[in-house]
Design a protein around this nucleic acid. Structure first.
Length: 525
RNA sequence: CGCGGGGUAGGGUAACGGUAACCCGUCAGGCUCAUAACCUGAAAAUUGCCGGUUCGAUUCCGGCCCCCGCAACCA
Protein backbone atom coordinates (compact mmCIF):
# COMPACT_ATOMS: atom_id res chain seq x y z
CA UNK A 1 0.00 0.00 0.00
CA UNK A 2 1.17 3.45 -0.73
CA UNK A 3 1.16 6.21 1.79
CA UNK A 4 -0.12 8.86 -0.53
CA UNK A 5 -3.84 8.38 -1.14
CA UNK A 6 -3.57 9.98 -4.55
CA UNK A 7 -1.18 7.24 -5.57
CA UNK A 8 -3.45 4.45 -4.47
CA UNK A 9 -4.26 2.30 -7.47
CA UNK A 10 -7.78 2.50 -8.77
CA UNK A 11 -9.97 -0.09 -7.20
CA UNK A 12 -7.91 -0.59 -4.05
CA UNK A 13 -9.91 0.44 -1.07
CA UNK A 14 -8.95 3.54 0.87
CA UNK A 15 -9.17 3.40 4.65
CA UNK A 16 -12.19 4.87 6.36
CA UNK A 17 -11.72 8.32 7.83
CA UNK A 18 -13.18 9.55 11.10
CA UNK A 19 -13.31 13.22 12.05
CA UNK A 20 -14.98 14.91 14.99
CA UNK A 21 -15.39 18.32 16.51
CA UNK A 22 -15.47 18.84 20.24
CA UNK A 23 -18.92 18.89 21.69
CA UNK A 24 -19.80 22.42 22.71
CA UNK A 25 -21.07 22.85 26.22
CA UNK A 26 -24.66 24.02 26.02
CA UNK A 27 -24.58 26.61 28.77
CA UNK A 28 -24.44 29.37 26.17
CA UNK A 29 -25.66 30.14 22.65
CA UNK A 30 -23.72 28.75 19.70
CA UNK A 31 -20.90 31.16 18.94
CA UNK A 32 -18.63 31.87 16.02
CA UNK A 33 -15.79 29.78 17.42
CA UNK A 34 -17.80 26.62 17.29
CA UNK A 35 -19.12 27.51 13.86
CA UNK A 36 -15.53 27.84 12.72
CA UNK A 37 -14.58 24.46 14.13
CA UNK A 38 -17.57 22.81 12.48
CA UNK A 39 -16.82 24.38 9.12
CA UNK A 40 -13.20 23.30 9.22
CA UNK A 41 -14.07 19.75 10.17
CA UNK A 42 -16.68 19.75 7.44
CA UNK A 43 -14.17 20.89 4.82
CA UNK A 44 -11.78 18.10 5.78
CA UNK A 45 -14.62 15.57 5.87
CA UNK A 46 -15.80 16.54 2.39
CA UNK A 47 -12.28 16.63 0.99
CA UNK A 48 -11.51 13.14 2.31
CA UNK A 49 -14.79 11.90 0.93
CA UNK A 50 -14.05 13.39 -2.49
CA UNK A 51 -10.64 11.76 -2.35
CA UNK A 52 -12.38 8.40 -2.08
CA UNK A 53 -12.51 7.73 1.64
CA UNK A 54 -15.64 6.70 3.43
CA UNK A 55 -16.10 9.30 6.16
CA UNK A 56 -17.66 9.42 9.60
CA UNK A 57 -18.32 12.95 10.79
CA UNK A 58 -19.21 13.46 14.42
CA UNK A 59 -20.42 16.49 16.32
CA UNK A 60 -23.01 17.08 19.01
CA UNK A 61 -23.55 18.60 22.41
CA UNK A 62 -22.10 18.20 25.90
CA UNK A 63 -25.02 18.44 28.29
CA UNK A 64 -24.08 17.43 31.82
CA UNK A 65 -22.45 19.26 34.70
CA UNK A 66 -22.89 21.93 37.29
CA UNK A 67 -23.09 24.91 35.00
CA UNK A 68 -25.92 23.42 33.05
CA UNK A 69 -27.70 22.36 36.20
CA UNK A 70 -27.50 25.92 37.47
CA UNK A 71 -28.46 27.43 34.16
CA UNK A 72 -31.54 25.25 33.98
CA UNK A 73 -32.53 26.28 37.50
CA UNK A 74 -32.05 29.94 36.61
CA UNK A 75 -34.44 29.49 33.74
CA UNK A 76 -36.88 27.58 35.92
CA UNK A 77 -36.55 24.48 33.84
CA UNK A 78 -35.79 20.88 34.43
CA UNK A 79 -32.25 20.12 33.23
CA UNK A 80 -33.54 17.70 30.62
CA UNK A 81 -35.95 20.24 29.23
CA UNK A 82 -33.20 22.86 29.15
CA UNK A 83 -30.71 20.68 27.32
CA UNK A 84 -33.32 19.48 24.83
CA UNK A 85 -33.93 23.05 23.80
CA UNK A 86 -30.25 23.88 23.74
CA UNK A 87 -29.37 20.84 21.64
CA UNK A 88 -32.09 21.78 19.17
CA UNK A 89 -30.54 25.22 18.79
CA UNK A 90 -27.13 23.75 17.99
CA UNK A 91 -28.71 21.38 15.51
CA UNK A 92 -30.41 24.25 13.73
CA UNK A 93 -27.01 25.73 13.09
CA UNK A 94 -25.85 22.81 10.93
CA UNK A 95 -27.74 23.45 7.68
CA UNK A 96 -26.95 27.16 7.93
CA UNK A 97 -23.26 26.35 7.96
CA UNK A 98 -23.56 23.92 5.09
CA UNK A 99 -22.55 20.93 7.18
CA UNK A 100 -22.59 17.60 5.33
CA UNK A 101 -25.54 16.03 7.08
CA UNK A 102 -26.81 14.31 3.95
CA UNK A 103 -23.91 13.69 1.64
CA UNK A 104 -23.30 10.32 0.03
CA UNK A 105 -20.23 8.69 1.52
CA UNK A 106 -20.32 10.75 4.72
CA UNK A 107 -21.99 9.26 7.77
CA UNK A 108 -23.02 12.22 9.85
CA UNK A 109 -23.83 11.87 13.54
CA UNK A 110 -25.01 14.39 16.08
CA UNK A 111 -24.33 12.87 19.47
CA UNK A 112 -25.74 14.14 22.76
CA UNK A 113 -24.16 13.15 26.04
CA UNK A 114 -27.65 12.58 27.38
CA UNK A 115 -28.33 9.89 24.73
CA UNK A 116 -29.04 6.58 26.44
CA UNK A 117 -26.38 4.70 24.49
CA UNK A 118 -23.82 7.34 25.37
CA UNK A 119 -24.74 7.08 29.04
CA UNK A 120 -24.39 3.31 28.91
CA UNK A 121 -21.05 3.63 27.13
CA UNK A 122 -19.69 6.10 29.67
CA UNK A 123 -20.67 3.73 32.50
CA UNK A 124 -19.08 0.78 30.75
CA UNK A 125 -15.96 2.84 30.16
CA UNK A 126 -15.84 3.65 33.85
CA UNK A 127 -16.30 0.01 34.83
CA UNK A 128 -13.42 -1.14 32.66
CA UNK A 129 -11.11 1.62 33.85
CA UNK A 130 -12.09 0.75 37.40
CA UNK A 131 -11.53 -2.96 36.85
CA UNK A 132 -8.10 -2.15 35.41
CA UNK A 133 -7.28 -0.37 38.65
CA UNK A 134 -7.19 3.15 37.25
CA UNK A 135 -9.96 4.61 39.38
CA UNK A 136 -9.82 4.95 43.14
CA UNK A 137 -11.56 6.82 45.92
CA UNK A 138 -9.85 9.41 48.02
CA UNK A 139 -10.56 12.41 50.14
CA UNK A 140 -10.49 15.60 48.24
CA UNK A 141 -9.90 18.94 49.94
CA UNK A 142 -12.44 21.53 48.99
CA UNK A 143 -11.83 25.20 49.56
CA UNK A 144 -14.99 27.09 50.15
CA UNK A 145 -15.45 30.84 50.27
CA UNK A 146 -18.24 31.72 52.66
CA UNK A 147 -18.45 35.17 51.11
CA UNK A 148 -19.21 33.85 47.64
CA UNK A 149 -20.88 30.72 48.95
CA UNK A 150 -18.92 28.88 46.31
CA UNK A 151 -16.17 26.31 46.06
CA UNK A 152 -12.92 27.80 44.80
CA UNK A 153 -10.26 26.14 42.72
CA UNK A 154 -6.57 26.91 43.19
CA UNK A 155 -6.45 28.96 40.04
CA UNK A 156 -9.23 31.20 41.25
CA UNK A 157 -7.34 32.11 44.41
CA UNK A 158 -4.90 34.95 44.82
CA UNK A 159 -2.28 34.27 47.46
CA UNK A 160 -4.47 31.58 48.92
CA UNK A 161 -7.45 33.87 49.34
CA UNK A 162 -10.60 34.52 47.42
CA UNK A 163 -9.89 37.69 45.44
CA UNK A 164 -13.42 38.94 46.10
CA UNK A 165 -13.23 38.34 49.83
CA UNK A 166 -9.54 38.57 50.73
CA UNK A 167 -10.22 39.18 54.40
CA UNK A 168 -12.19 36.01 54.92
CA UNK A 169 -10.49 32.73 55.63
CA UNK A 170 -11.44 29.95 53.25
CA UNK A 171 -13.20 27.01 54.81
CA UNK A 172 -11.52 23.76 53.99
CA UNK A 173 -13.39 20.52 54.17
CA UNK A 174 -12.94 17.10 52.78
CA UNK A 175 -15.13 15.23 50.44
CA UNK A 176 -14.83 11.75 49.03
CA UNK A 177 -14.31 11.67 45.28
CA UNK A 178 -13.24 9.17 42.69
CA UNK A 179 -9.92 9.87 41.07
CA UNK A 180 -8.38 8.76 37.81
CA UNK A 181 -4.75 7.63 37.91
CA UNK A 182 -3.60 10.14 35.34
CA UNK A 183 -0.15 10.20 36.93
CA UNK A 184 0.80 6.72 35.72
CA UNK A 185 0.48 7.81 32.10
CA UNK A 186 3.33 10.26 31.93
CA UNK A 187 5.67 7.88 30.16
CA UNK A 188 3.09 6.35 27.80
CA UNK A 189 1.89 9.81 26.84
CA UNK A 190 5.41 11.00 26.13
CA UNK A 191 5.87 7.95 23.93
CA UNK A 192 2.68 8.74 22.10
CA UNK A 193 3.81 12.30 21.42
CA UNK A 194 7.16 11.08 20.23
CA UNK A 195 5.79 8.64 17.73
CA UNK A 196 4.76 9.90 14.38
CA UNK A 197 6.36 13.22 15.00
CA UNK A 198 8.31 14.65 12.14
CA UNK A 199 11.58 14.75 14.01
CA UNK A 200 11.72 12.44 16.99
CA UNK A 201 10.27 9.21 15.71
CA UNK A 202 11.05 6.35 18.03
CA UNK A 203 10.54 3.74 15.37
CA UNK A 204 8.75 1.48 17.83
CA UNK A 205 5.04 0.97 17.45
CA UNK A 206 4.50 3.95 15.26
CA UNK A 207 1.03 5.26 14.80
CA UNK A 208 -0.40 3.75 11.65
CA UNK A 209 -3.02 4.82 9.26
CA UNK A 210 -5.79 2.38 8.44
CA UNK A 211 -3.90 1.09 5.42
CA UNK A 212 -0.83 0.43 7.51
CA UNK A 213 1.13 3.43 6.38
CA UNK A 214 2.88 5.35 9.13
CA UNK A 215 1.37 8.64 10.17
CA UNK A 216 4.02 11.20 9.48
CA UNK A 217 2.34 14.30 10.79
CA UNK A 218 2.66 15.13 14.50
CA UNK A 219 0.13 13.70 16.92
CA UNK A 220 -0.91 17.23 17.77
CA UNK A 221 -1.17 19.81 14.98
CA UNK A 222 0.35 22.36 14.85
CA UNK A 223 3.62 21.11 16.30
CA UNK A 224 3.93 24.13 18.58
CA UNK A 225 0.96 22.72 20.46
CA UNK A 226 2.61 19.34 20.56
CA UNK A 227 5.57 20.99 22.26
CA UNK A 228 3.24 22.65 24.69
CA UNK A 229 1.54 19.43 25.74
CA UNK A 230 4.85 17.61 25.88
CA UNK A 231 6.22 20.21 28.26
CA UNK A 232 3.09 19.95 30.35
CA UNK A 233 3.23 16.17 30.65
CA UNK A 234 6.96 16.21 31.23
CA UNK A 235 6.50 18.34 34.33
CA UNK A 236 4.54 15.52 35.89
CA UNK A 237 0.88 14.66 36.13
CA UNK A 238 -1.52 14.62 39.02
CA UNK A 239 -4.47 12.33 39.28
CA UNK A 240 -7.69 14.14 38.61
CA UNK A 241 -11.12 13.88 40.13
CA UNK A 242 -13.68 12.19 37.96
CA UNK A 243 -16.79 12.33 40.12
CA UNK A 244 -19.02 14.70 42.03
CA UNK A 245 -21.34 14.05 44.95
CA UNK A 246 -24.82 13.55 43.60
CA UNK A 247 -26.30 15.41 46.53
CA UNK A 248 -24.50 18.54 45.40
CA UNK A 249 -24.70 18.02 41.69
CA UNK A 250 -27.18 15.43 40.49
CA UNK A 251 -27.04 16.35 36.78
CA UNK A 252 -24.62 13.77 35.52
CA UNK A 253 -24.17 10.13 34.67
CA UNK A 254 -24.39 7.95 37.80
CA UNK A 255 -21.19 6.21 38.77
CA UNK A 256 -21.69 2.46 38.34
CA UNK A 257 -22.46 0.74 41.64
CA UNK A 258 -22.28 3.97 43.62
CA UNK A 259 -25.36 6.15 43.20
CA UNK A 260 -23.99 8.68 45.66
CA UNK A 261 -21.69 9.97 42.89
CA UNK A 262 -22.10 11.16 39.35
CA UNK A 263 -19.31 11.31 36.79
CA UNK A 264 -17.45 14.51 36.34
CA UNK A 265 -18.49 15.93 32.97
CA UNK A 266 -15.12 15.66 31.30
CA UNK A 267 -14.91 11.99 31.94
CA UNK A 268 -18.39 11.53 30.57
CA UNK A 269 -18.11 13.87 27.59
CA UNK A 270 -14.83 12.60 26.18
CA UNK A 271 -16.27 9.11 25.82
CA UNK A 272 -18.57 10.48 23.10
CA UNK A 273 -15.80 10.02 20.55
CA UNK A 274 -16.22 6.28 20.82
CA UNK A 275 -19.82 5.95 21.98
CA UNK A 276 -20.90 7.72 18.80
CA UNK A 277 -19.35 4.97 16.67
CA UNK A 278 -20.98 2.14 18.55
CA UNK A 279 -18.59 1.32 21.38
CA UNK A 280 -19.09 -0.98 23.29
CA UNK A 281 -22.17 -2.62 21.82
CA UNK A 282 -21.53 -2.51 18.09
CA UNK A 283 -17.90 -3.51 17.92
CA UNK A 284 -17.97 -4.11 14.19
CA UNK A 285 -18.87 -0.49 13.63
CA UNK A 286 -16.36 0.60 16.22
CA UNK A 287 -13.54 -1.38 14.61
CA UNK A 288 -14.22 0.19 11.26
CA UNK A 289 -14.20 3.75 12.49
CA UNK A 290 -11.66 3.56 15.28
CA UNK A 291 -9.30 0.75 14.37
CA UNK A 292 -9.29 0.57 10.58
CA UNK A 293 -9.35 4.35 10.29
CA UNK A 294 -6.46 4.73 12.70
CA UNK A 295 -8.68 6.61 15.15
CA UNK A 296 -10.40 9.95 15.21
CA UNK A 297 -9.05 13.19 13.91
CA UNK A 298 -10.25 15.54 16.63
CA UNK A 299 -10.67 19.23 15.98
CA UNK A 300 -10.66 21.40 19.08
CA UNK A 301 -9.89 24.87 20.36
CA UNK A 302 -6.62 25.64 22.09
CA UNK A 303 -8.36 25.63 25.46
CA UNK A 304 -8.96 21.94 24.92
CA UNK A 305 -5.38 20.90 24.32
CA UNK A 306 -5.00 19.01 27.60
CA UNK A 307 -8.32 17.32 27.64
CA UNK A 308 -7.99 16.02 24.11
CA UNK A 309 -4.33 15.25 23.80
CA UNK A 310 -3.50 14.13 27.34
CA UNK A 311 -6.52 13.27 29.49
CA UNK A 312 -8.52 11.54 26.78
CA UNK A 313 -5.50 9.65 25.50
CA UNK A 314 -4.74 8.42 29.01
CA UNK A 315 -8.35 7.39 29.42
CA UNK A 316 -8.17 5.36 26.23
CA UNK A 317 -5.03 3.68 27.52
CA UNK A 318 -6.87 2.87 30.75
CA UNK A 319 -9.41 0.80 28.85
CA UNK A 320 -6.79 -0.56 26.46
CA UNK A 321 -8.01 1.13 23.33
CA UNK A 322 -5.74 2.64 20.68
CA UNK A 323 -5.17 6.41 20.77
CA UNK A 324 -6.83 9.00 18.61
CA UNK A 325 -5.22 9.55 15.25
CA UNK A 326 -4.60 13.25 15.52
CA UNK A 327 -5.58 16.31 17.49
CA UNK A 328 -5.96 19.51 15.49
CA UNK A 329 -5.81 22.67 17.55
CA UNK A 330 -7.62 25.79 16.35
CA UNK A 331 -6.97 29.31 17.48
CA UNK A 332 -9.71 31.58 18.71
CA UNK A 333 -11.58 34.22 16.84
CA UNK A 334 -11.00 37.52 18.54
CA UNK A 335 -12.59 40.89 18.10
CA UNK A 336 -10.85 43.80 16.44
CA UNK A 337 -7.32 44.36 17.67
CA UNK A 338 -7.08 40.85 19.08
CA UNK A 339 -9.44 41.60 21.96
CA UNK A 340 -11.17 38.57 23.34
CA UNK A 341 -14.76 38.25 22.24
CA UNK A 342 -17.25 38.41 25.01
CA UNK A 343 -20.81 39.33 25.59
CA UNK A 344 -19.89 41.93 28.15
CA UNK A 345 -17.66 43.75 25.68
CA UNK A 346 -20.40 43.56 23.11
CA UNK A 347 -18.00 42.38 20.41
CA UNK A 348 -19.31 38.83 20.24
CA UNK A 349 -20.37 37.75 16.80
CA UNK A 350 -23.27 35.51 16.02
CA UNK A 351 -22.51 33.28 13.03
CA UNK A 352 -26.17 33.36 12.05
CA UNK A 353 -26.08 37.10 11.50
CA UNK A 354 -23.23 36.67 9.04
CA UNK A 355 -25.04 33.89 7.22
CA UNK A 356 -28.17 36.01 7.04
CA UNK A 357 -26.34 38.93 5.49
CA UNK A 358 -23.83 37.18 3.23
CA UNK A 359 -24.84 33.56 2.92
CA UNK A 360 -23.43 30.24 4.04
CA UNK A 361 -20.60 30.00 1.56
CA UNK A 362 -19.40 33.50 2.34
CA UNK A 363 -18.92 32.49 5.96
CA UNK A 364 -17.23 29.27 4.91
CA UNK A 365 -14.94 31.26 2.62
CA UNK A 366 -13.96 33.55 5.45
CA UNK A 367 -13.20 30.67 7.79
CA UNK A 368 -11.25 28.82 5.15
CA UNK A 369 -9.17 31.59 3.69
CA UNK A 370 -9.16 34.64 5.93
CA UNK A 371 -8.65 33.00 9.31
CA UNK A 372 -5.34 31.56 10.34
CA UNK A 373 -5.72 27.79 10.43
CA UNK A 374 -4.08 27.37 13.84
CA UNK A 375 -3.56 30.73 15.52
CA UNK A 376 -5.91 33.39 16.78
CA UNK A 377 -7.45 35.59 14.14
CA UNK A 378 -9.32 38.82 14.49
CA UNK A 379 -12.77 39.24 13.04
CA UNK A 380 -14.31 42.54 12.13
CA UNK A 381 -17.39 43.24 10.05
CA UNK A 382 -15.38 45.60 7.83
CA UNK A 383 -12.74 43.01 7.14
CA UNK A 384 -15.36 40.49 6.32
CA UNK A 385 -17.01 42.81 3.86
CA UNK A 386 -13.70 43.75 2.24
CA UNK A 387 -12.66 40.19 1.66
CA UNK A 388 -16.14 39.27 0.48
CA UNK A 389 -16.05 41.99 -2.14
CA UNK A 390 -12.45 41.45 -3.18
CA UNK A 391 -12.37 37.69 -3.49
CA UNK A 392 -15.88 36.38 -3.77
CA UNK A 393 -17.64 39.10 -5.74
CA UNK A 394 -14.74 40.58 -7.74
CA UNK A 395 -12.69 37.42 -7.80
CA UNK A 396 -14.59 34.19 -8.09
CA UNK A 397 -18.02 35.55 -9.00
CA UNK A 398 -16.87 37.99 -11.62
CA UNK A 399 -14.53 35.50 -13.25
CA UNK A 400 -17.37 33.02 -13.56
CA UNK A 401 -19.56 35.64 -15.23
CA UNK A 402 -17.00 36.87 -17.70
CA UNK A 403 -15.92 33.44 -18.89
CA UNK A 404 -19.41 32.03 -19.18
CA UNK A 405 -20.64 35.11 -20.98
CA UNK A 406 -18.01 34.67 -23.69
CA UNK A 407 -18.76 30.98 -23.93
CA UNK A 408 -22.49 31.36 -24.03
CA UNK A 409 -22.73 34.22 -26.52
CA UNK A 410 -20.27 32.58 -28.88
CA UNK A 411 -21.67 29.09 -28.45
CA UNK A 412 -18.35 27.63 -27.33
CA UNK A 413 -18.68 24.61 -25.09
CA UNK A 414 -16.62 23.13 -22.33
CA UNK A 415 -14.90 19.91 -23.38
CA UNK A 416 -12.76 17.24 -21.80
CA UNK A 417 -9.93 17.57 -24.29
CA UNK A 418 -9.20 21.11 -23.15
CA UNK A 419 -9.60 20.09 -19.53
CA UNK A 420 -7.19 17.21 -19.90
CA UNK A 421 -4.66 19.46 -21.54
CA UNK A 422 -4.87 21.93 -18.72
CA UNK A 423 -4.75 19.18 -16.09
CA UNK A 424 -1.42 18.09 -17.52
CA UNK A 425 0.12 21.55 -17.41
CA UNK A 426 2.91 22.31 -15.00
CA UNK A 427 0.91 25.23 -13.69
CA UNK A 428 -1.95 23.02 -12.64
CA UNK A 429 0.29 20.36 -11.14
CA UNK A 430 2.00 22.90 -8.93
CA UNK A 431 -1.34 24.26 -7.78
CA UNK A 432 -2.76 20.85 -7.11
CA UNK A 433 0.22 19.94 -5.02
CA UNK A 434 -0.17 23.07 -2.93
CA UNK A 435 -3.86 22.28 -2.58
CA UNK A 436 -3.48 18.63 -1.56
CA UNK A 437 -0.58 19.32 0.73
CA UNK A 438 -2.62 22.01 2.45
CA UNK A 439 -5.50 19.66 3.06
CA UNK A 440 -3.18 16.91 4.30
CA UNK A 441 -1.66 19.30 6.81
CA UNK A 442 -5.08 20.64 7.80
CA UNK A 443 -3.87 23.96 6.46
CA UNK A 444 -7.16 24.92 4.89
CA UNK A 445 -5.87 28.40 4.19
CA UNK A 446 -3.07 27.05 2.01
CA UNK A 447 -5.50 24.85 0.12
CA UNK A 448 -7.83 27.79 -0.43
CA UNK A 449 -5.00 30.05 -1.50
CA UNK A 450 -4.10 27.65 -4.26
CA UNK A 451 -7.59 28.05 -5.69
CA UNK A 452 -7.36 31.81 -5.60
CA UNK A 453 -3.96 31.60 -7.26
CA UNK A 454 -5.73 29.86 -10.11
CA UNK A 455 -8.50 32.45 -10.17
CA UNK A 456 -5.93 35.25 -10.39
CA UNK A 457 -3.93 33.53 -13.13
CA UNK A 458 -7.11 32.94 -15.10
CA UNK A 459 -8.21 36.57 -14.90
CA UNK A 460 -4.81 37.47 -16.23
CA UNK A 461 -5.15 35.15 -19.19
CA UNK A 462 -8.42 36.79 -20.20
CA UNK A 463 -6.69 40.14 -20.14
CA UNK A 464 -3.60 39.02 -22.02
CA UNK A 465 -5.17 36.92 -24.76
CA UNK A 466 -8.30 39.01 -25.09
CA UNK A 467 -10.45 36.28 -26.63
CA UNK A 468 -13.41 38.67 -26.62
CA UNK A 469 -11.54 40.76 -29.21
CA UNK A 470 -9.82 37.90 -30.98
CA UNK A 471 -13.14 36.23 -31.77
CA UNK A 472 -13.82 38.86 -34.42
CA UNK A 473 -10.85 37.98 -36.63
CA UNK A 474 -9.57 34.62 -35.39
CA UNK A 475 -12.48 32.39 -34.45
CA UNK A 476 -10.39 29.21 -34.05
CA UNK A 477 -7.80 30.87 -31.81
CA UNK A 478 -10.43 32.47 -29.63
CA UNK A 479 -12.31 29.23 -29.36
CA UNK A 480 -9.21 27.47 -28.09
CA UNK A 481 -8.66 30.20 -25.50
CA UNK A 482 -12.23 30.09 -24.32
CA UNK A 483 -12.15 26.33 -24.02
CA UNK A 484 -9.11 26.61 -21.85
CA UNK A 485 -10.84 29.22 -19.73
CA UNK A 486 -13.82 26.93 -19.34
CA UNK A 487 -11.55 24.09 -18.32
CA UNK A 488 -9.91 26.33 -15.76
CA UNK A 489 -13.23 27.44 -14.37
CA UNK A 490 -14.39 23.86 -14.18
CA UNK A 491 -11.26 22.99 -12.25
CA UNK A 492 -11.80 25.91 -9.89
CA UNK A 493 -15.29 24.62 -9.22
CA UNK A 494 -14.01 21.14 -8.55
CA UNK A 495 -11.32 22.27 -6.14
CA UNK A 496 -13.86 24.44 -4.38
CA UNK A 497 -16.23 21.55 -3.74
CA UNK A 498 -15.23 20.81 -0.15
CA UNK A 499 -14.87 24.45 0.80
CA UNK A 500 -17.87 26.14 -0.79
CA UNK A 501 -20.08 23.16 -1.65
CA UNK A 502 -23.07 25.12 -2.87
CA UNK A 503 -21.20 27.63 -5.00
CA UNK A 504 -18.83 24.99 -6.35
CA UNK A 505 -21.69 22.78 -7.48
CA UNK A 506 -23.28 25.78 -9.15
CA UNK A 507 -20.10 26.66 -11.04
CA UNK A 508 -19.47 23.12 -12.17
CA UNK A 509 -23.10 22.85 -13.32
CA UNK A 510 -23.03 26.14 -15.22
CA UNK A 511 -19.83 25.26 -17.04
CA UNK A 512 -21.17 21.90 -18.07
CA UNK A 513 -24.44 23.42 -19.27
CA UNK A 514 -22.63 26.37 -20.86
CA UNK A 515 -24.88 28.82 -19.08
CA UNK A 516 -24.05 32.22 -17.74
CA UNK A 517 -25.27 32.71 -14.16
CA UNK A 518 -28.67 34.36 -14.11
CA UNK A 519 -27.66 36.51 -11.19
CA UNK A 520 -24.18 37.32 -9.94
CA UNK A 521 -22.85 34.52 -7.73
CA UNK A 522 -21.93 37.05 -5.07
CA UNK A 523 -23.44 40.52 -5.05
CA UNK A 524 -20.99 43.25 -4.09
CA UNK A 525 -21.84 44.76 -0.73
C1' C B 1 14.11 32.76 37.31
C1' G B 2 6.54 28.48 36.00
C1' C B 3 5.18 27.00 30.56
C1' G B 4 4.12 28.33 25.55
C1' G B 5 3.23 31.78 21.38
C1' G B 6 4.13 36.52 19.33
C1' G B 7 6.00 41.92 18.15
C1' U B 8 7.84 42.84 9.87
C1' A B 9 4.63 48.77 5.02
C1' G B 10 -2.23 51.88 7.05
C1' G B 11 -4.51 46.63 8.34
C1' G B 12 -3.60 41.19 7.97
C1' U B 13 0.29 37.77 7.17
C1' A B 14 5.18 35.42 4.66
C1' A B 15 10.35 34.69 4.44
C1' C B 16 14.19 32.58 8.89
C1' G B 17 22.07 33.95 7.17
C1' G B 18 22.90 37.00 1.32
C1' U B 19 18.97 42.97 -2.65
C1' A B 20 12.22 42.08 2.84
C1' A B 21 7.48 38.69 -0.29
C1' C B 22 1.99 38.26 -0.53
C1' C B 23 -3.29 39.83 0.26
C1' C B 24 -6.58 43.98 1.44
C1' G B 25 -6.63 49.19 1.21
C1' U B 26 -4.43 53.89 -1.38
C1' C B 27 -2.64 56.35 -6.07
C1' A B 28 -1.59 56.41 -11.62
C1' G B 29 -2.19 54.05 -16.40
C1' G B 30 -4.56 50.24 -19.57
C1' C B 31 -8.81 47.16 -21.13
C1' U B 32 -14.17 46.76 -22.16
C1' C B 33 -15.72 39.85 -22.05
C1' A B 34 -17.36 40.67 -16.84
C1' U B 35 -20.63 42.08 -10.78
C1' A B 36 -17.87 50.53 -11.64
C1' A B 37 -15.54 44.24 -12.11
C1' C B 38 -10.30 42.76 -14.69
C1' C B 39 -4.82 43.74 -16.03
C1' U B 40 -0.14 46.68 -15.41
C1' G B 41 2.69 49.93 -12.57
C1' A B 42 3.70 53.14 -8.21
C1' A B 43 3.94 55.00 -3.21
C1' A B 44 4.48 52.84 1.48
C1' A B 45 8.75 48.78 6.46
C1' U B 46 15.84 51.97 9.62
C1' U B 47 11.71 43.76 10.28
C1' G B 48 9.88 46.05 19.27
C1' C B 49 14.72 48.06 21.82
C1' C B 50 20.11 47.36 23.09
C1' G B 51 24.43 44.55 22.44
C1' G B 52 27.19 40.20 20.32
C1' U B 53 28.68 36.40 16.40
C1' U B 54 29.50 36.99 10.99
C1' C B 55 32.27 39.44 4.95
C1' G B 56 26.93 39.92 5.68
C1' A B 57 21.15 39.16 10.45
C1' U B 58 14.41 40.09 9.88
C1' U B 59 16.84 35.31 10.15
C1' C B 60 21.85 32.80 15.05
C1' C B 61 23.28 34.19 20.47
C1' G B 62 22.62 37.31 25.12
C1' G B 63 19.86 41.11 27.70
C1' C B 64 15.57 44.30 27.99
C1' C B 65 10.49 46.19 26.86
C1' C B 66 5.52 45.10 25.33
C1' C B 67 1.20 41.85 23.87
C1' C B 68 -1.56 37.12 24.16
C1' G B 69 -2.79 32.25 25.95
C1' C B 70 -2.11 28.43 29.78
C1' A B 71 -0.82 27.52 35.11
C1' A B 72 -4.93 21.23 35.90
C1' C B 73 -10.35 19.45 37.97
C1' C B 74 -12.58 25.64 34.64
C1' A B 75 -16.92 21.54 30.08
Amino acid sequence: MTKNPSKTATGSKKPPFYITTTLPYVNAEPHIGFAMELIRADIIARAKNLAGHEVFFNTGTDEHGLKIFQKAKQNHKEPQEYVDEAAAKFKELLPLLGIAENVAGITFKFVRTTDTDHIAAAQEFWKIADKNGLIYKKNYKIKYCVGCELEKTESELVEGKCPLHPLMELEVYEEENYFFRFSVYQKPLMDLYGRGSVSGSSGVGERRDGDGSPVTTPFVVPSSRLNEIRAFVERGLEDFSVSRLATKMPWGIPVPNDPAHVMYVWFDALVNYISTIGWPTDMKKFDKWWVESGGAVQYCGKDNLRQQSAMWQAMLMAVKLPPSKQIIIDGFITGEGGVKMSKSLGNAVNPLDIVKEYGTDALRYYVARELHPFEDSAYSPDKFKESFNAHLANGLGNLTSRILKMAETNGIKYDLVAEKEFAESAEYKTLLEKYSEGLDKYDIQQASNSIWDLIGATDKIVQERQPFKKIKEDRAGAEKDIKELLARLHMIGTMLLPILPETAAKIVGLVEKNKMPEAPLFMRK
